[in-house]
Design a protein around this nucleic acid. Sequence first.
DNA 1: CCTACCGATCGGTAGG
DNA 2: CCTACCGATCGGTAGG
Lengths: 205, 205
Amino acid sequence: MSTSGGRPRNRRGDGALLREEIVRGAGRLLEETGSEDAVTLRAIARTVGIAAPSIYAHFPDRESVLLAVVQDAFADLGRAMTMVDEADPVARLRAVCAAYLDFALTRPARYRVLFGGAWSAARAQETPTVAADAATVGFDVFDVLVRAVRDCADAGRSTGTDPFADATALWAGLHGLAALRPVTPMFPWPDGVLDRLVDRLVLLT
Amino acid sequence: MSTSGGRPRNRRGDGALLREEIVRGAGRLLEETGSEDAVTLRAIARTVGIAAPSIYAHFPDRESVLLAVVQDAFADLGRAMTMVDEADPVARLRAVCAAYLDFALTRPARYRVLFGGAWSAARAQETPTVAADAATVGFDVFDVLVRAVRDCADAGRSTGTDPFADATALWAGLHGLAALRPVTPMFPWPDGVLDRLVDRLVLLT
DNA sequence: CCTACCGATCGGTAGG
DNA sequence: CCTACCGATCGGTAGG
């Protein structure tokens, strides 16, 4: 069934190149199918254009490929939230939240893998080192949120007195939107839900 | 491998009984494994104590069994939210939200199946009649929320002027909590997050 | 990086 | 409600 009949050979010194192709192929596959289970070694191999066993030269097993996808996605999300360029703390908080939501809406399957549970809760007990890592990175993302909220309070733009608790509520609201929107195409989400959440949960003035 | 060696024969007229056992077994399996994919026909058959092909006497295919689980879960959630017995509208809204969250936290896998997307968005296009049904029931659950919010506004206990929009934001917050909590065992969720969300998003006075 | 292959598991059918 | 079985797919290994 291999329609490609082989792939152009990599140049010397490109040993890490294929590894990257595998991770990106797996990510693309995740996004196209919307399901983590559809990202099989064979499917990955097909999209990359190699034989399935060749993946084992770069990863010990399927789970490790998925973990690499998760780590990449966490890094992307963190980068998107950090790269926000706004001086005003309120504008910055809004932009950070918008970046979070944008990531989730443009890459719903990737986002679902990040906070869907398989890589933080369940597997954290089975493979502590590996999944604790993913969990930690997830908390880093949350910290960006806490800091943005605290900056608003420090600037006297929020009447909230507990930035951590406020950020927690905000995270819940953000995640709710991020998770529900891609799943409810028929639902008439009102305009400005995001700003409504930010305004009210952070008690912006 | 069948350790049970057959099951006691049902009494006459219990034709619908096994169907129920299958759905409940599938639900239990879903909760124990946490994954929809683990609910295979063979696994269901094992928990119920029958042979896998026997399921076809009650359901045309695997998808239909899962749909029955989803419909049951929607009915359960709707019932739990409606059965709330509080006269004061604010107390009632809080109780409705608590019931929603309680359902999600005590049956996380079932909740995930309800609002995880597989049964509302994706499959709605493939099998319109079937999944549109599930989506409708999901909206019924949301309507309970809207009414509870509106009752607060009508009683002058909320300064919100758009019950639908407020309920939408509240739903996002609720779902965020419901989805994130089971997945973040290490995260120090502050006490009273739920009430904080309700208070602020519905502008309770 | 490849072909060839194993053992396991799945959804579903045949036939009773 | 059962046994027996098919075709497909999977993760992973052998051996090069």
